[in-house]
Amino acid sequence: MASVTIEQVRKQYGAVPVIHGVSMDIEDGEFVTLVGPSGCGKSTLLRMLAGLEDISGGEIRIGGRLVNDVAPKERDIAMVFQSYALYPHMTVAENMGFALKLKGGDKAAIGKRVKEAADILALGPLLDRLPKQLSGGQRQRVAMGRAIVRHPQVFLFDEPLSNLDAKLRVTMRAEIKDLHQRLKTTTVYVTHDQIEAMTMADRIVVMRGGAVEQIGKPLELYDRPANTFVATFIGSPAMNLFEGSIGDGQFVTDGGARLPLPAGYSVHAVRTYGVRPEHLALSENGVPATVVVVEPTGSETHVVVKIGSADTSLVLRDRIDLEPGQQIAVAPDLSKLHLFSASGTRVN
């Protein structure tokens, strides 16, 4: 196990920069997820950690050792690929034991380590099968098994669950988390699924366009997003954002609605007013709104309403009969507002 330090790391392909000076500290034993929209450079950063891409600038340290020019096999890391990349002609046991065999361990010792890893992942009965004889979830577990037999310093995952169906994804999510709690190996996990990031990570790194937008614990990002990008990226359904300006102690949206502010709030540089769907409630003397769509999910009801000219989502815990077109009034929880400046950074 080891800490990972990334300092001002840059990457360019030819003249095209794709990572613009990313820095982060990952503690020993920590589970960090990298999230961000497609093409933001998550895989590139992970591959630089693995040594599969060279680094155009900056420094990467694993366990204190500078690894910029260290070959992948010397970095003591293990990587799980989105496609699993199992060796098709090797059995599960051979796949898992390959790295150990290359290191020159004796057969019995390798067999023992493979057996241990197989037990952890419930792969015991499958050890003699070929990858093509496994289901998607089983292949996924073999890919993890191949990583854990080596007892590496760091695990790297690149969207390992994206080829699985929704249900299996939830199961495997829990399994990976459980595995991490048992092994306590430093883990960097790439995903574009913010739920995956929220549920699994000790800390989340939100990236966009090759730069870090915010780093923090899942609930920190949820409670205090540093900017409008993180605000809409984390949380589902996404946070409602209203553009407008402050006047008479209220927030007047460009669409003409008047939204309440906490008493005595006087910073004038607010351009964007954010409130999460779950922090809006029906309230008699709230902001007038017109129901557009009602989507019951069973446990809660998702409602889209128009406030001013803006479509706004609500998540209601109670079962309330609402009809499209109906006039209602909603009120935000004033202690959970998110206010942003014109440049999109948080001001409250």
Binding site: A50, G51, L52, A71, P72, K73, I77, A78, M79, F81, Q82, S83, A85, L86, Y87, F98, A99, L102, K103, R146, R150
Partner: peptide, 18 residues
């Protein structure tokens, strides 16, 4: 053949010849 196969083996510690 997929690039990941090469990279997985590389990370596993295999030389190019291997």
């Amino acid at each position: 053949l997929p690039k990941e196969l090469f990279e997985a083996a590389e990370i596993d510690g295999a030389s190019v010849f291997r």
